[in-house]
Design a protein around this nucleic acid. Structure first.
Lengths: 220, 220
DNA sequence: TTGCAATTCAAACACTTGTATGAAACTATC
DNA sequence: GATAGTTTCATACAAGTGTTTGAATTGCAA
């Protein structure tokens, strides 16, 4: 107990630095400098660098998953156990996209940290990451209920592509802006979410629910 | 001149190790051990570790781009200047997917190295990477010619999503296999290519060329 | 205030990293 | 076969890494 001040200062500084520069080039000395704390404090409070990273990841992982599941559950309850596929997908990719894109000042360090963690596979995180599969299975379940005629394989691929578009867009947002000479506005987060959800919905419904070809706006 | 043997042994070993384990945890000592070569050889032949990485990346970058452009050019010539969008997308994502997926023994180290390079952003590569945008612009041009009614913004997003699905599927192939309990067969590369191309095509044509809703098999 | 545990701190430690050095071995030319 | 240029090698070096140490400082209860 006592003064958690140092502890949380380290957590905040580490998360910020890791989110910005990745795990590779952030040293413990960088972290303690950013936190205005002595070098030995990290080992004193967390045991080791890896345990610090692990704690950061576990905490954020739980929070992100809770947020996504909250949206999902609300949608399913409102639909009497079956939510529209667009809404499910929105619950899956919305929180992360909103946290990582948009105007600079309102991006969450937490979301950016999680994206880093999903890219750079550092040992302490890799060990924990398997649990994420259980989390994704809950979305698979919801998608099955939403699209009972769809094969499992198609569901898995749809989920995979939805995450692909969301994560890749975040990671390569700078390149997309440059390539499109600013024509693709990544600050308009809701537009990005709508595009991702729309395409993923098409991937999941094409060739089955014919004629309905959901428009991009329908996913808003 | 003289014996390039050492030089190329280093290149091969480095590419293999980087492809497998990433830039982060491969040291020069790992490389020279794998190449059966003295530690000082890397600095003697390449100047520095960074220059070795840069040479590796430039070489592979040129080769990959040439392969993709070759497919693209052939398609456009056959179509009298306008290739079907499916074929353009196939030229974009096919080579990489084929190189990185499929049965273990026929995956190319080159392709896997390039994926590593596109994920882990290490300084020597970051400096070079900007040129890739020029390469992508050629695909944007072909896509514009193929879909003249489509807005530039939609073209850029379609390209972005196509690359997203291809790269993410490669990076997270293990997770997808585990999540789907083997139901998604990532060794069937042509099926994966067809799925990616199909979804990207839908993203690029939906709401415009109505009724045609291209089926997954149509993209084969 | 005194005493004791929790916390902070400067310094050092053991280890790994990429790079440099200078002697040895090799190769080809005369 | 001697010589000059290239390549290899064992070894050392300087810088940076995470971690440990033991003394100083703080905070709080008796």
């Amino acid at each position: 107990m006592a003064s958690d001040h140092t502890r949380s200062a380290i957590l905040a500084a580490a998360e910020r630095l890791y989110a910005d520069r990745g795990f590779g080039d952030v040293t413990m000395r960088d972290i303690v400098a950013e936190a205005n704390v002595n070098l030995a404090a990290v080992n004193y409070h967390f045991g080791s660098k890896d345990e610090l990273i692990a704690e950061l990841f576990v905490t954020r992982s739980i929070a992100t998953n809770r947020e996504r599941l909250h949206e999902l559950k609300a949608a399913e309850e409102q639909g009497g156990g079956r939510a529209p596929i667009e809404v499910i997908l929105r619950a899956l990719v919305g929180p992360t996209l909103r946290g990582c894109l948009g105007p600079e000042n309102q991006r969450s360090t937490a979301a950016r940290f999680m994206i880093r963690a999903s890219i750079e596979s550092v040992p302490p995180i890799r060990r924990i990451k398997n649990r994420e599969i259980d989390h994704l299975r809950k979305f698979v379940g919801a998608m099955r209920r939403s699209l009972p005629d769809r094969s499992d394989v198609d569901i898995y691929w749809g989920l995979n592509f939805a995450l692909a578009m969301a994560h890749h867009t975040i990671r390569e947002s700078e390149r997309l802006t440059k390539l499109s000479e600013g024509k693709c506005d990544l600050d308009d987060v809701e537009d990005v979410v709508a595009r991702v959800v729309s395409v993923a919905t098409m991937a999941l419904t094409a060739g089955r629910t014919e004629t309905k070809a959901p428009s991009r706006l329908a996913a808003r």
